[in-house]
Structure formats: C-alpha cells, structure tokens
Amino acid sequence: MTDTGYTQLLDLACGAFLLSGVLVLARRGLAGVIRVFTAQGVALAALTIVIAVHERSAEWGVAAVGIVALRAVALPMMLRRALADQRDAEARPLVNIPASLLAAAALTLLAYVASQPLVHLAPSTATHAIPIGVAMVLIGLFALTTRRRAVSQVVGFLVVDNGITAVGVLTLASVPLVVELGIALDVLFAVLVLQILATRMREAFGDTDLDELRELRD
C-alpha cells in the first residue's frame, strides 16, 4: 500500500466513522439507530484493518476481527432483541434533531481544538485523526444525555466506547490484550444489564422512557 493510498483509505474510514456517529443523532426510529450503529462498528473495523495492513501487524488484524464480532454483530443483535417493538421510536428527544446536528458539529469542532496537544505529541497520519475519536466520545455523551428511550441511551453509551476504541487504535497504542478483553467484556455486561432494565421497564410502565424513573430519589 502506498502512503497516499494509506492516507486516503484511513481518511475514508474515519469519515465513515464520524458520519455514522452523527447519523445516530439524526435517526428517529430505533431500528434505524441500531443499523447506523452497526455501520459504525464496521467503519471502526475497517479503520483497524487499514492500520493493520499498513503496520503489517497480525495483532491489529486480530483486533479488527474482534471489533467486527463484538461491535458489528454481537451488540447490534442484542440491541435488536431488546427492541421487541419495531415501531418504538424516539418520539420527543430532549433536543430536537436539527439542533442535535448543530450540536454535533460544535462538539466536533471542540474535539478538534481540544485534542491538538495529543496530535502534537507524535504527528503522523493516524494521530491526525484522533479528534474524530474524541468527537465521537462527545457525541455519544450528547446522545446519552438527550435521548429518552433506553435503547437509544445504550447506543449513546456504545458510541462513547467506540470513540474510546478509535482513539486507542489511532494512537497505535499497544494496549495489552487482557485490558482490551476486559473492556470488551465490561461493555457486553453493561449492555446486558441495560437490556434487562429496558425489558423490565416495558413490563412495568409499558414504555422505556427513562424519565418515568423520576421518583427514584431521596
């Protein structure tokens, strides 16, 4: 792979990653949100593969396979199962969709400005894309904060995790495999718990709007 080709492929993968993250905010139907999230997992895996090929590293290849298995297959499947009713939609997000998109743009800009010190530590093609990962963390947090349905919140949480993984991949940091596995397992458990929570909420309230839980305070 030539350097130009590597740069273009990397930028393409990062672009897809960012776009899918923004689309999470743009979609209203929960099934669509899960589809976009799946796409983001694929984009993250593509990003890892590009880096694996460039670095000629089998370890990164294995990581890419793991990312596909967890983020593009396992997690979306579990989310779909939690979403028993396909018509369940994000009816009234706390911040409406056009405003959310503007906020996503602002957050991306903030991420670019705030992560400059990280880029300057070791400038390279891969590290120049770090702001994408940081932006994804912020967008995920934003989704977590402003969406009402339990499933969209889980997706927000997973987008945060995707962003963290992307930063890890882009810094070419060799995170020990055990740590990586531990984090993946944590995420899996979190989703399991949230899935159970969502099911229980539907049984109790016939709805998965988290604002129904207001009474749970001192």
Binding site: L94, L107, L110, L138, L141, F142, L144, T145, T146, R148, L210, D211, L213, R214, E215, L216, R217, D218
Partner: peptide, 18 residues
C-alpha cells in the same frame, strides 16, 4: 439540583466535560 431525572444527571456530567 437532583430532581430524579436521569437525563439531568447525565447532562451534569456531559456539561462538566464540555
């Protein structure tokens, strides 16, 4: 500050980070 809304609590964290 703590009215029981999960979103509000998440918003505090998000706002602080931002």
């Amino acid at each position: 500050l703590a009215d029981g809304s999960v979103h509000r609590y998440l918003g505090y964290g998000f706002g602080a980070v931002t």
